[in-house]
């Protein structure tokens, strides 16, 4: 979506905000301007990369103003060239094609195989490609903030990120989340 249409969407939300948001009972007092969603994305695996971007893009479509704060392993989700993996290790809930002992799951090459299978399954089921979903978030006006402290901790350079990513710290997050209607830690 273009900048223009996005600002049109923002303008539109002011008129709909008067309707009490579903489930807003007991929430913060009615506010001026668009509803806000604040997300902290802290995980860097292929499966956990989806929730922040799915929720962010959907909320933006529902006229929310959205900010995602990427911290620790979540920074991987901002890489220009996404190379995210999935592992069944430490994740007994992952559906497996056949039962496999944990020792077997730890063998070299297993993670690459799991990742390949997961990507194939997602593609077959019509789940959106992650890079495409992320780009949609950017186009629709979702603000992406990378944690400066984690960058320093891991000696990472922000030049590895896609365009439009801002840097900030915990205080930056609170600046946005303070009056957010919904805040999520993922």
């Amino acid at each position: 979506m273009t900048e223009q249409s996005n600002s049109a969407a923002q303008g539109q939300s002011t008129s709909t905000v008067q309707q009490p948001a579903q489930g807003a009972q007991g929430g913060p007092a009615p506010q001026e301007g668009p509803k806000k969603l604040a997300i902290i994305a802290s995980k860097g695996s292929l499966d956990w990369a989806y929730p922040p971007f799915i929720l962010a893009s959907t909320a933006a479509s529902l006229d929310y103003e959205v900010e995602i704060f990427f911290t620790f392993y979540g920074l991987q989700l901002l890489d220009r060239d996404l190379d995210l993996q999935v592992s069944s290790l430490g994740n007994p809930g992952m559906p497996m094609p056949m039962p496999m002992p944990v020792m077997g799951q730890a063998l070299p090459g297993m993670q690459a195989m799991m990742t390949k299978m997961m990507k194939r399954k997602m593609s077959a089921k019509g789940v959106v490609d992650l890079a495409e979903l992320r780009q949609t978030c950017v186009d629709i006006g979702v603000k992406l903030v990378a944690c400066q402290m984690t960058l320093d901790l891991f000696d990472m350079d922000s030049s590895r990120f896609i365009d439009g990513v801002e840097l900030g710290g915990a205080a930056t997050f609170f600046g946005f989340a303070e009056d957010a209607n919904i805040s999520l830690f993922i």
């Binding site: 979506m1 969407a9 959907t58 479509s61 529902l62 089921k125 019509g126 789940v127």
Partner: peptide
């Protein structure tokens, strides 16, 4: 058709914006 959550909503929103 063939698209999964959240794509139908995202695409509908994009179209409605135009």
């Amino acid at each position: 058709t063939g698209l999964n959550c959240p794509l139908p909503i995202l695409k509908a929103k994009k179209t409605l914006a135009s």
